[in-house]
Design a protein around this nucleic acid. Structure first.
Lengths: 186, 186
DNA sequence: GTCTATAGTTTGATAGAC
DNA sequence: GTCTATCAAACTATAGAC
């Protein structure tokens, strides 16, 4: 694995644990095993690193959604996999979604980073809306309502569930918060 | 208003905009109009300030819930007021709940602050569960399920809705995310 | 209670040798 | 690509005068 990737992995990890304002180049240097100054060779400024982080996160996320679509036919199976993805990303209550972590510190981000963040959210919502449209056709989700409303509600639910689970450092809080939605699936 | 209260107001404001790691005594000093060092007289350390913030936030929140109970009889009216409270607290997309903001930076908090945070969440969940129990009796919320599940789901929904609204700086995103739940109310 | 002054650390970032 | 050395700025916090 090249250094740049290694740094991105480490930065994503620590950013999702502490937020954008909660980590420094010193943290990365310590964990990756090079000096602070060397990181600036890969990412001249922290703002550059933030943009790179969100970009990679967005494309990884998009791929994951594509895999879900290939793997599952039913809307209910796809949505269950979606929720499960956020559950797994929690790492037992230690991390949250990068998007959520960065949203709190949005005033520290550059315009470019904010645009990337917005694009990420847009992609998520589009996929969810599309999937709830499918749900209305295949009937796999009980009393399914307006796709756009369902999409926004589920996104808020999984992000909020991560947040409360992070607050208590307990995955079970995520499970409790998502149980109601999952009970609508077969 | 005494200085301590003034400082708490200012700190709560900026903490809810930037998170715990995103504000400093310098920010407060600038806005309140005294020197950095003077703040240490009121709050010896930032950790003390954090605890005071959560304590006050929790009691204010508890009072607000009590007022809702006095004002409304129906569970549906109470829950609508609850959601509306989180909407108002958003300040147009500029701030989120203190609990949510602090959850992201939980690793920077002391054990005492974490305990207070936990108590806050516990109180919220208790009130919600109690209110959903009422809903099951007065029938004002459509297809109401297990109170504990409903409570956890709604807490996650409003916190997640704040987060996505903060990400985009748009209240309308909060509205879209909470629309589905509100449609279950008369 | 608030001030000045300052300590000691950490931050993001740059210059230049290798 | 990574290093040492260094910078200016910001950070939390303390001592002591008023």
């Amino acid at each position: 694995m090249d250094r740049r990737t290694e740094l991105l992995n480490c930065a994503e990890n620590v950013a999702r644990r502490h937020g954008y304002d909660g980590f420094s180049y010193a943290d990365l240097a310590k964990e990756v095993g090079i000096r602070k100054a060397s990181i600036h060779y890969h990412f001249p400024s922290k703002a550059d690193l933030a943009v790179a982080l969100i970009e990679r996160y967005a494309s990884t996320h998009a791929e994951a959604l594509a895999v879900i679509d290939e793997t599952s036919e039913l809307a209910s199976d796809r949505l269950a996999a979606y929720v499960q993805g956020y559950r797994k990303a929690l790492s037992g209550g230690a991390k949250i979604c990068l998007c959520a972590a960065f949203s709190v510190s949005r005033d520290s981000l550059t315009d470019e980073a904010l645009r990337e963040l917005d694009a990420f959210r847009g992609n998520s919502l589009n996929w969810l809306e599309k999937t709830f449209q499918l749900a209305n056709k295949d009937g796999s989700v009980s009393h399914s309502a307006e796709p756009a409303e369902e999409a926004a509600a589920l996104l808020a639910t999984v992000e909020g569930a991560q947040l409360v689970a992070r607050a208590a450092n307990k995955v079970s809080d995520f499970d409790q918060a998502t149980k109601l939605f999952l009970s609508r699936l077969p």
